[in-house]
Amino acid sequence: MTSQPAPAPADTATFDPAPPFGLLLDVDGPIASPVTRTVAIESIGRDLATMANAGIPVVFNTGRSDAFIAEEVVPALRAAGLLEGTPVFTVSEKGAVWADVSPAGLGEIHIDDHLKLPAGLYDDVRTLVAQRYASLMFFDETKRAMVSVEMTVGADPHAYLAAQKHFDDAIPELLEKHGLTDVRIDPTIISTDIEHELVGKDLGAARTLELLSARGIAAASWFTMGDSRTDYAMADWLHARGHEVSHVDVRPADGVPETPYPVLTSATGAIHDESGAEFLTAWAGRLNR
């Protein structure tokens, strides 16, 4: 007689090893407002939880720290009824840090030590920000592998972008001081990341498939989502390895490149998290058909 597995508790999800699609999501822009730096649209948490509870893999592939996910994203999922056992993960700092996500928060934090920048560089950048740029940007103390500074909430964005250029120009001298030749500077509209050259959204995609494989999950197709050209790297990586993928660009004003896979943009002209919310609601609605 073959024994049957015990049913999962009512508050625990059961996952489909072959879900119809998976979500690989940048956070700043598509999920969190770049203005408030919070999950400001209620439907985002609701739709993500709905899909995760139905066994759809939801992976945050972000330059943000694990602390940001725990403090800003997890509460929205918890409030929306995220269940235990769902295939939800954060791949933070562009692949250098990762953890599973549950209603209680994050599981064990994993760090790729080969991608960590030296503590001395952290100290020098922290000092640079404090001495010259404290009115417009702050040093992100939550990063574990990369060094990041971010525009202060409420700061004038034009003043920030002008100061950011001077800040970015000062970094190569610090990299030379520490003998770092395998590090790049990656500015965005609200931050600058100083990071190992091997991190990126493509590394985040690779980590994602490793995490899902460890749970025996293989999505039939993928939706990736981002607000910058660098976010296309996750769709590029998936497509190059034979996965069916469509990419959502929530800020297409930067220009939509030619790709061998579909690129989707808001039909209403919405951008950032408003665009992200539209797509998430549409995808969650598929589960009820």
Results as ranks from 00 to 15, higher is better:
207 R>V: 15
230 T>Q: 11
143 K>H: 15
6 A>S: 11
78 R>I: 08
246 S>Y: 02
90 T>I: 08
65 S>E: 04
242 G>I: 09
75 P>K: 02
258 E>A: 14
64 R>S: 03
20 P>H: 02
81 G>N: 00
238 L>Q: 13
162 A>P: 05
143 K>T: 14
184 R>T: 12
60 F>S: 07
50 T>W: 04
44 I>G: 00
243 H>W: 10
47 D>T: 14
83 L>A: 15
12 T>H: 12
139 F>W: 13
31 I>T: 04
266 S>F: 10
9 P>C: 13
127 T>L: 10
11 D>A: 02
102 S>N: 10
203 L>V: 11
155 A>M: 11
116 K>D: 05
154 G>N: 04
116 K>Q: 13
145 A>S: 14
203 L>M: 12
228 S>D: 10
262 P>K: 08
282 A>M: 13
181 T>G: 14
179 G>W: 07
151 M>A: 04
276 G>L: 00
251 R>I: 05
75 P>M: 01
250 V>H: 00
128 L>V: 11
153 V>S: 09
243 H>V: 03
94 K>C: 11
186 D>W: 10
110 H>T: 14
92 S>E: 09
181 T>P: 06
199 V>A: 03
20 P>L: 07
226 G>I: 01
78 R>D: 12
47 D>K: 02
224 T>V: 08
103 P>L: 06
246 S>E: 15
68 F>G: 00
65 S>W: 10
253 A>M: 07
62 T>V: 05
54 A>F: 08
64 R>H: 00
89 F>S: 03
124 D>W: 06
193 D>W: 11
11 D>N: 13
192 T>S: 14
160 Y>V: 05
238 L>W: 11
199 V>I: 04
105 G>K: 03
